[in-house]
Design a protein around this nucleic acid. Sequence first.
DNA 1: ATAATTAACTTAATCGATTAAGTAAGGCCC
DNA 2: GGGCCTTACTTAATCGATTAAGTTAATTAT
Lengths: 336, 336
Amino acid sequence: MVTITDISRACGVSRATVSKALNGAPDIAAETAERIRECARSLGYLPNATARALKVGRSNNIGVLFSDSTGGGISHEYFSKILESVKAEAEKLGYDITFISKDLGDMKMDFYEHAKYRNCDGVVVASADFHDPAIIRLCTSDIPTVTLDYVYDSRTAILSDNVRGMEELVTYVHSMGHRRIAFIYGELTSVTQKRLASFKKTCASLGISVLPEYMRQGVYHDPRSSGLATRALLSLPERPTCILYPDDFSFIGGMNELEKQGVSIPKDMSVAGYDGIPLSQVLRPRLTTYRQGAERMGAEAARLLVEQIEHPDTWLPQQVTVEGELLTGDTVSRPD
Amino acid sequence: MVTITDISRACGVSRATVSKALNGAPDIAAETAERIRECARSLGYLPNATARALKVGRSNNIGVLFSDSTGGGISHEYFSKILESVKAEAEKLGYDITFISKDLGDMKMDFYEHAKYRNCDGVVVASADFHDPAIIRLCTSDIPTVTLDYVYDSRTAILSDNVRGMEELVTYVHSMGHRRIAFIYGELTSVTQKRLASFKKTCASLGISVLPEYMRQGVYHDPRSSGLATRALLSLPERPTCILYPDDFSFIGGMNELEKQGVSIPKDMSVAGYDGIPLSQVLRPRLTTYRQGAERMGAEAARLLVEQIEHPDTWLPQQVTVEGELLTGDTVSRPD
DNA sequence: ATAATTAACTTAATCGATTAAGTAAGGCCC
DNA sequence: GGGCCTTACTTAATCGATTAAGTTAATTAT
């Protein structure tokens, strides 16, 4: 391994000079700096991130926390998109990404300890149980954090615009003539509560009265649950004309149930999903859904985290809401 | 931050003693060790992974490389499953995971340099262009590596059993009475070549003669391409009775095309996918497919990499083939 | 009783890089 | 010509932990 010492010997200067030259310090003569850089290049020198991190107390490494318990892990399309964009943006900014988990090997550690142990400069927290004390500890600690889809007091967060998403969806199906709109929603997280509230509010402001039977709790990302909910909705004396699913993947369960009962989409029943995963735009009929701005959310999360890391003193916590986009597919038609 | 020095002061022993006590060295009295551990606990001591890594030259950190160019990035179901299991297994073994990319920030680095820079003890390489010189450099370097679905000479690799997968699929559809079997395959990677060879060989050994028109090149993970290929197959004077798709997601494109042409699955046309992603088992009819053992592959990759890292001298490169499992869904029926 | 061994520490060097503080040489000014 | 800046370096401490080698004191062997 080529170190700064090797270069200093090869160039006949002190190690300090080499370090400064490579970092562009102002008190090194231009030609000396060039000579040193050339020498470093020819020797194949690579800075040692570990040594640098130890000295300067910054690792240029940010943690990413996807707690798996909720099932909303890495293989969830929405979160994997976020992860991908966090990664891309972080790399652009010169930061690497390390996963934060509890219980590394035989060491009993919580998330905060893990992040500290790895010297993470900050952590992006997504898809977590935000009521988990270990998550709370991390997100209220001295480590800069950015949460996704959840706000801790005086902390930076990136939020998907669930209120607007629901509003656009409901407004759209209303504009298509639907008045009997059912909504299958997921577990009661803060996201779900926003969607529910927005659903109710939008319905109210459009003058739609929603039967309580039209609002059914389901489970995110679970076609079985949405299939059951769909069956229940179909057996109502007064069937809805449109069903909103908790997410695109859940819709598949509904689709199956509808098909089984000979209910054709969108002729006999209009439907819409949520998320805008690739699958939704590849299915025929194309699913009407609200695409969350996962890429932008991930990029913003990384960007704000890095800003917070690099300017801790002037940092003002902020909540950024990223709007999505209504994808009007072909699964919502005008009811008879 | 609590360091070893703080503990040594609090306990009235040297820093060396503290370090040894915490690492269970044999030359520390049991009661002293206990006192030190207790003290460390009460002070909330956390070892500093960076400092340790600098000293011992090992980071307990493994790199994961998913090059994005091929589009087989993190959000690909198969690869995200692999990533998830690599992560889980690595964590069990006490290793963290860092993504390896090229061009971190403004530093021009290739994969090898990045891994070195971050002091990775080893790298898992997946979903990459294995002909990329940068990948080759990494995978033939002094850094321990494990590749997935590709073998470099005298290097450890984890392979999905593509030969067996194809064989099982073909044998199965043959046993269901199909003789006119079409195969849409993806880009000609080594994986594709294995599948193609196995397809031909199995057909031959079963006495099926495959029309050249029945083998069509498509693109992995691309429903549009598979839709076009499907259309072409349907317009043949002698239609196949069964179509094998390059993967489950591609199948969606075929499904759309079949539906459009009023060809019912599986009554008029049998189909099968490959991968066994969750979606395939949630669709109705359930897709017949071959589930690759992504979880086992990821876990094996991590396990072998760590073994290689921890016993470099006695390490013998090996290629492990992980078998998958035929999922007989409901999309293959007996042809008339 | 003395030498040899063992147990339980401590000392000090080290990993590779950064950086505050120090220094020497040259230039500038009055 | 003496003092004062600059410029361009060097010296040396430091980050936190590990570990080979050294040092005691106590124990065992002869």
